[in-house]
Amino acid sequence: MFTKVTSGEVQTITIQFEGETLVVRKGLNVAAALLEAGVKQFRETPVSGQARTPFCMMGVCFDCLLIIDGMHNQQSCMIEVAEGMKIERQLGMATIEFNASAEQGL
């Protein structure tokens, strides 16, 4: 279980994870914030579909990859939470929208 040990003053912000609203501590990285919130699965590997959670917390292992504000393959341990941030699990390969008009991409 992840528990807070801070004695400092805590400010919170609101983020969305998988459509659910989470109140998290300001200043945390996304990975830490989700771990504290009790999230047990961040991504599923593209090879076998195994559930993964952050392993190294320092940008080395790439197991904390999430979709953050629509962007895939984000190393969540390296990104600070922001008010209103929309976060989703990354299941398998990163997806790219190919059904939208091609021109939107430019």
Binding site: K4, V5, G8, A32, F55, M57
Partner: peptide
């Protein structure tokens, strides 16, 4: 590789920066 396994360094980083204990 299972969910719930971390490096100990990761635990220390969580403790230092995020004031989070496991």
């Amino acid at each position: 590789t299972l969910s719930g396994v971390m490096t100990m360094g990761a635990a220390q980083i969580l403790l230092k920066e995020s004031e989070l204990a496991i």
